[in-house]
């Protein structure tokens, strides 16, 4: 009985462990190993080069640009999405007729396939015939080169990302808002606090952990950015929208510079690991409260 009782949890974990071992642990190890080789494929004909690939990444203008773009994109889109999510949550905090319907509709962009989203917005951004520029020209403004101005293209993609994923930030923040006990506000109201002071001194501090989690989850996702760039700009114009994911994809599946691609992948996994630690710490802190 006790032996089987000790074995049981392992038995239950076996399928998941098998899948993780084959599909993540092994690939992770292989990526790590490959990052130390110069190879155009696997380990056959591979040449051990130590940390040469990492040094090359460091020296590569394109990798540095990809990192800069990814960080810029992550920070700006996360801030905007959390801000938009907070705004929406506050707006929908009080019940009114049609609120449920609105909440459902607001979620629509978030569940669409990124490819569908990209198809729509690529058409919208078209310089000569796109909906946005048609709109601008109708009111007498010049068209905007959404995707071909290198100083603008990244922000156009941010716009799409905010449209698509602000509802996700909203969901988290809204859930947090619902959990704030109403009597906190009652007390403040008795003290004569105005709406702005109530928001600043009560709502915001109580919401802070939710804002943090929303920001963390959004930044993790933004950091992976691939689909939108792949189908919207291919990383261009120039390197203006190249991201680290695109860099890995191009080195790996176009150039077959597997060593260099693996090195870049290792960098990404390291960053993901760091973010996971931050996230785990915040979860543990939340659980302790």
């Amino acid at each position: 009985m006790t032996a089987s009782r000790r074995l049981l949890p392992w038995l239950l974990l076996t399928p998941a462990l098998l899948i993780f071992a084959g599909l993540t642990l092994y690939p992770l190890g292989r990526t790590l190993a490959l990052s130390l080789f110069a190879t155009d494929y696997g380990f056959e004909n591979a040449k051990f080069v130590g940390l040469e690939n990492f040094r090359e990444l460091w020296d590569s203008r394109f990798f540095r640009q990809a990192v800069t773009n990814t960080v810029l994109f992550t920070v700006v889109s996360t801030v905007l999405e959390v801000a938009a999510g907070l705004g929406l949550a506050l707006l929908l905090d009080r019940a009114f007729p049609g609120r449920t319907l609105i909440m459902t509709l607001l979620l629509a962009p978030f569940v669409l396939s990124t490819m569908v989203v990209t198809a729509i917005w690529r058409a919208w951004f078209h310089f000569d015939l796109g909906f946005l520029n048609n709109l601008l020209r109708t009111v007498g403004l010049p068209g905007v080169p959404w995707l071909f101005d290198p100083n603008l293209a990244l922000w156009s993609i941010v716009l799409v990302d905010v449209w698509q994923t602000a509802p996700f930030a909203f969901l988290i923040i809204f859930a947090g808002l619902r959990l704030i006990p109403q009597d906190v506000y009652e007390a403040a109201r008795v003290d004569g606090a105005g709406p702005w002071r109530r928001f600043r001194d009560m709502t915001l501090p109580l919401l802070a952990p939710y804002l943090f989690v929303a920001a963390l989850l959004r930044s993790v996702d933004s950091f992976k950015l691939f689909d939108k760039v792949y189908a919207m700009t291919g990383g261009g114009p120039g390197q203006a929208t190249e991201t680290v994911s695109m860099f890995v994809y191009r080195q790996g599946f176009r150039f077959f510079d597997i060593g260099l691609a693996s090195a870049a992948a290792v960098v990404m996994i390291a960053v993901a690991g760091l973010l996971a630690i931050v996230y785990a710490a915040s979860l543990l802190k939340g659980a302790g409260r």
């Binding site: 974990l13 993780f20 084959g22 599909l23 993540t24 092994y26 690939p27 992770l28 292989r30 990526t31 490959l34 696997g42 993790v220 950091f223 992976k224 691939f226 680290v244 994911s245 890995v248 994809y249 790996g252 599946f253 597997i258 691609a261 693996s262 992948a265 290792v266 990404m268 996994i269 993901a272 690991g273 973010l275 996971a276 996230y279 785990a280």
Partner: peptide, 24 residues
């Protein structure tokens, strides 16, 4: 440990695993 690992996988970029996955 297991949950930590699950979390890393949840957060890791899929492209980073794509090359070895091909081989698997």
């Amino acid at each position: 440990v297991f949950l930590g690992f699950v979390l890393v996988i949840k957060l890791a970029p899929p492209i980073a695993l794509a090359i070895p996955l091909y081989q698997v």
